[in-house]
Nucleic acid binder design. Structure first.
Lengths: 391, 391
DNA sequence: AGCGTTAACTCAACTTTCTTGAGTGTTCAA
DNA sequence: TTGAACACTCAAGAAAGTTGAGTTAACGCT
């Protein structure tokens, strides 16, 4: 979901330049540092065009010179890299009880992250809090608003009034109106809104384990379980922005059909352990239970792995991704355990001898993944050529 | 899967023009006939640019003048339409025992369709047959090869060596090498290869019930059951071209987990009825059983509808499409019956009050859907702007 | 019926951006 | 030492889009 006007699909010199600029930035980002000729080959532009564009980008402060490198014959290569402070992205994760914010620089390094409790989950409170945080973050970091390229907002999906409405941890009052537009008006910035799983997937793609991957799926442990889908480098949103609602599909655990997220989610492990009289409220509780090899937790993990195996079969056969990443608000040890115990379906298009990536990998999880992913939405946009595909 | 070299991502005047041309063609195709100003508004180009492009396209024989229409004030609109004989697409569907071919004009009207039995399912036999058919079709229709814009090939997936290899009706010898490239070399044409479900989805989008839809799913009754996914107007292919292999995922029928296509496919109904001593070999047999309200068939239909309901839940929640279309090699009556009996999952992101399309619709099925879809792949390309999104 | 307004379209000048080809400088290898 | 390979720059040229003024036709108000 984006807050933009109708895209201008036609190409003219100006739009072509903008497109090519982003192409050059992306090519440089892809390899870290690069010279003109290399970029020209990667983009299909002439060296001269790349030269001109680079000189523009240097002027705009988006690139820095990175010394020369003499590689083989010929004139040594003058190299360029993304200038980290060439721009910033504001990432926001809205949860019912708190707002997480992050300011991230152009290469994806977090400059500052914060957690701000919410007085209430009211729409107006959220908007005020986010606005105040933006303001305070900018003054604290001494970064001008002009350097801000946009804001990414992570909100619990699904968006709009759907058959899943009324479940989980929703926020009241957002079913009407386009959230992206509302935030864009409040913040006076380009705004991108996604659910946690999609944002987390983008975070992994920008700076995590999914760097360089263009087609993958991300299973995100949030309150429930979400699925972020990246196809040809783009988030798969669906017609109404609600693709990836995997939590409610039925999977098999011990021959019984259950909703995936009733077997595989943070709420699920809490409920499962509560039935055994164990109260876990945070990740540390889980870690200590795991390190003491608590048999109830181990049982839950096995159930989760079983459910996950079914889910994996569905995801792989429907999307044929390069890999499936597991991450989110769950301790790394537990994710690793689940991954090790998850049977990789044999009857799957992903079961191919020539694979280069494992079928199931752990993400660089952490509490802030989704928030940083929110910021990554903005960066992704900045590095994505603008002349759009057909609609 | 496409047989092209690395795409030239950079924009230059020439590529911009090609992009804009396709934009204009698509805008005209979208509404049937259109004037310059209208196209300019739709594309974000100036009227003048559109004028120049239209004059080019007239010269290339891709457009025809379509008289004037005086709409309100102002100078009457000079209208243009796609010239049907401005180009042709060759569609091929390869099955183990026969090759189906179709020649389709620029607006999607079939000029000629054929079924050619195969002497064997050998790769070389197939290539020879397809080549001979292309030749014979061109001479019979008196259409020059220069007017051919490309060939679309439908082959049973999955492509490459996967965990699903060894099942169903595969063709031997295609697991190595890129089929698109092999056909491109044989036919000396741009070639697009997809599975039957994807091609059928494109057929529906070009001239069928999915006209104007950009995000939908197509459940295709072939030998098994395939899923064609269209996202933002493009076929979702997956990292290795095998997305949509839905037939092998587990669904619930009467509380039992079964593979979807063991409950919902042509093979499935044949097997089910065979167990009751009923032999059906073609669609007519099914139709007559249905019109006599055969209780075994009705039972199978109920099972199929149950399985489909599970599948629908998965498809809707993972893709959030505008609609799901059911079609392929199954009589319309039976499809309608299944659709009427399929419970629409309540817990689905597609269960929204503001829907405009039904959640489940019947495609304009027919024996040739996939073959015409093969041709539609070529047409789709011709109407899709070329400056690509990020990869 | 007359006349101003609206709208589509064309013409010609101008602008932006890309490409091309010649030229320069550096490095490696024979 | 010399020539080939390669990165890059300079200057000229080409392609395609935009802009703004001008033309034509239809509508609608008086």
């Amino acid at each position: 979901m984006v807050s933009t006007l109708k895209p201008q699909l036609g190409a003219n010199p100006e739009r072509a330049r903008s497109h090519n600029k982003q192409l050059v930035l992306r090519a440089i980002r892809h390899v870290g540092t690069a010279g003109r000729a290399e970029i020209a080959r990667a983009s299909g532009l002439s060296t001269q065009a790349v030269s001109n564009i680079i000189s523009d980008l240097l002027g705009e402060g988006l690139l820095i010179e990175q010394g020369v490198r003499s590689a083989g014959r010929g004139l040594p290569v003058q190299q360029y890299a993304i200038k980290p402070d060439g721009g910033y992205a504001f990432g926001v994760e809205v949860r019912p009880t708190a707002v997480f914010t992050a300011l991230v620089d152009l290469v994806g390094t977090p400059v500052l992250t914060r957690r701000t409790p919410l007085r209430s989950a009211e729409k107006s409170t959220i908007l005020e809090t986010v606005f105040a945080q933006l303001d305070s973050v900018l003054t604290e970091t001494q970064i001008g608003k002009g350097a801000l390229m946009g804001a990414g907002i992570v909100m619990p999906g699904p968006f709009g009034d759907t058959g899943l409405t009324g479940t989980d941890s929703e926020l009241p009052g957002w079913n009407t109106g386009d959230p992206a537009e509302i935030f864009a008006n409040t913040l006076d910035l380009p705004v991108f809104v996604e659910n946690d799983a999609n944002a987390a997937a983008m975070a992994e793609r920008m700076n995590g384990i999914a760097r360089g991957l263009d087609d993958f799926a991300y299973l995100y442990f949030g309150q429930g379980l979400g699925l972020g889908l990246v196809q040809k480098g783009q988030i798969l949103q669906g017609a109404f922005g609600n693709a990836g609602e995997i939590g409610h599909i039925q999977v098999l655990v011990d021959g019984q059909a259950v909703a995936l997220e009733s077997a595989t989610s943070r709420l699920s492990v809490q409920a499962f352990l509560a039935r055994e009289g164990l109260e876990v409220t945070n990740m540390e509780d889980l870690i200590s239970l795991y390190s003491s090899a608590n048999r109830h937790l181990l049982l839950w993990l096995d159930n989760a792995a079983q459910a996950l195996s079914s889910a994996l079969s569905i995801i792989e056969n429907l999307f044929d991704p390069q890999t499936v990443i597991l991450g989110g608000a769950m301790p790394d040890e537990l994710l690793d355990h689940i991954i090790a115990r998850t049977a990789l379906p044999e009857r799957s298009v992903s079961n191919r001898p020539d694979r280069v990536h494992p079928r199931l990998m752990r993400g660089t999880s952490g509490r802030m993944t989704a928030t940083l992913g929110a910021a990554a939405l903005v960066l992704h946009q900045a590095f994505t050529p603008t002349i759009a595909e057909a609609r």
